[in-house]
């Protein structure tokens, strides 16, 4: 999955699940869109669906400090890379 594909998919998720149209990639999600922890959980479940497999507890915990869409994309890229190295 390329960075562009990840970004496109994340934007789709934000539009479909959180009704946020065209969010800025460096916007603080909590401050600007009142994104809370339940939303973060929902995002994690969407990421699991996107990756086609469940996230580990450790991976989930790492995601809870994410604040921007760019950080979400970095996080997904990092997981894909780690998993492909491990495979």
């Amino acid at each position: 999955m390329t960075r562009q594909e990840i970004e496109r998919e994340i934007k789709n998720i934000f539009q479909r699940e959180f009704e946020i149209e065209n969010p800025g990639f460096d916007d603080d999600l909590r401050e600007k869109y009142e994104f809370d922890s339940i939303d973060a959980i929902e995002l994690l479940l969407e990421i699991e669906r996107m990756l086609g497999s469940e996230l580990t507890q450790e991976e989930k915990k790492q995601a809870m400090d994410i604040r921007t869409i760019n950080q979400i994309c970095d996080y997904i890229e990092r997981i894909i890379q780690t998993r492909s190295k491990a495979a």
Binding site: D36, S37, I38, D39, I41, K60, K61
Partner: peptide, 12 residues
Amino acid sequence: SAPNEMMGAAMI
């Protein structure tokens, strides 16, 4: 009720 009360690892 306010999810901000249990951020991060506590939420998980």
